[in-house]
C-alpha cells in the first residue's frame, strides 16, 4: 500500500508572534519554503529557534501571525487527517492498549469494520506484532514512540510531521528508530518533515537539511544532501556535510570536532 503525497506544501512568508505577559516574542520571521510530495526534509536549529513552532503551524495547531501555508490548493488553518504528527513524548493515552491507541488515530469517516484490519496493518508496519494488548507503561521508550508513529499514520496522512521524535531516546535506540523511519518512508512514500537538534540524524535522513537561526527564527541555509541511501555515517561526504552544518552554527573559529594542524 503506497499512498504517495501528491500535493506540494507551500510555506509563504510565515511569521509567528507570541503575545506574552512580558511583551511579544517573534518566534518565526518571514519563513518561506516549498516541500515536494514524498520529500524528506530535516530542520535543524538550536533550541528556541522556532522549528517546533513551524511544525505546529503546518499541523494547524497554531495559526500564522502573517503569511500562509498551503497544501495543494487548500490553506491550512486547522488539524486534518491528511497530516500526522509525532511529538518528542509519545503522548499515548495510558488507559488504552497499544491497539486502542493506534485505533484512536483512525478518522471517524472510516467504516468501523475496517478498523481491525487498519490497526493490524500498522502494528506490522512499526514492528510491534504481539504487543497489541500491552499498556503504554509496559513498553520501552522506543516502543512507545513506534506506537505513536503508527497512530500518526493510521489516518493515512500525506505528510508526517516529526517533532524531535527520538530526542528522548538513548543513542542506540535512536539509530534504530532512524532506520525504522527510513524504512517507513521508503515503503509509504509520504512527505516527511523532521525537526531535530541532532545534525547526524538530519543528514542521515533528509533530502534537504534546513538550518535555522534563532531569535527571530528564520531559515539560514538550505543544504541538499546528495548521497544515496542508506547513508554511511562515517563516509567522507557525510563528514563534509556535517562540517558544513557545524560551521553554520559555530563559525570558522570554533570547530568542536575537527582539529587541524
Amino acid at each position: 500500500m503506497t499512498a504517495a503525497g501528491k500535493e506540494m506544501l507551500r510555506i509563504r512568508n510565515v511569521s509567528k508572534r507570541f503575545e506574552l505577559d512580558s511583551g511579544s516574542v517573534l518566534a518565526l520571521d518571514n519563513v518561506s519554503m516549498d516541500v515536494k510530495p514524498g520529500e524528506f526534509i530535516s530542520i535543524v536549529g538550536s533550541s528556541g529557534c522556532g522549528k517546533s513552532t513551524l511544525l505546529r503551524l503546518v499541523m494547524g495547531l497554531e495559526s500564522c501571525t502573517s503569511g500562509n501555508i498551503e497544501l495543494g490548493e487548500t490553506n491550512i488553518s486547522k488539524p486534518s487527517a491528511e497530516r500526522g504528527m509525532v511529538f518528542q513524548e509519545s503522548r499515548l493515552l495510558p488507559w488504552k492498549t497499544v491497539a486502542e491507541n493506534i485505533a484512536f488515530g483512525i478518522p471517524k469517516t472510516n467504516p468501523k469494520k475496517e478498523h481491525n484490519a487498519i490497526v493490524k496493518e500498522h502494528v506490522e508496519l512499526v514492528d510491534l506484532h504481539g504487543f497489541e494488548q500491552a499498556l503504554p507503561y509496559q513498553l520501552s521508550g522506543g516502543m512507545q514512540q513506534r506506537v505513536s508513529i503508527a497512530r500518526a499514520l493510521v489516518g493515512r496522512p500525506n505528510i508526517l510531521l516529526l517533532d524531535e521524535p527520538f530526542g528522548a531516546l538513548d543513542a542506540l535506540t535512536r539509530i534504530q528508530m532512524q532506520l525504522e523511519i527510513l524504512r517507513i518512508w521508503e515503503t509509504e512514500r509520504k512527505t516527511m518533515i523532521l525537526v531535530t537538534h541532532d545534525i547526524d540524524e538530519a543528514i542521515f535522513l533528509g533530502d534537504r537539511v534546513i538550518v535555522m537561526s534563532a531569535r527571530p527564527g528564520s531559515i539560514r541555509k538550505v543544504i541538499h544532501i546528495n548521497l544515496p541511501r542508506p547513508r554511511d555515517r562515517s563516509s567522507t561526504e557525510f563528514m563534509n556535510y556535517r562540517r558544513d552544518i557545524f560551521q553554520e552554527f559555530f563559525g570558522e573559529q570554533q570547530k568542536p570536532f575537527v582539529f587541524e594542524i
Binding site: L61, P79, A81, M85, L93, W95, F104, R151
Partner: peptide
Amino acid sequence: KHIEVATMLGKNPSSILIHVILPS
C-alpha cells in the same frame, strides 16, 4: 498534551471527554 493529540486527530468535544478527560 493528551487533549492536543485528540484535537489533532480530529476528535469532537464529546469524544475528547469520553476518551481523554474522563479516564484521566
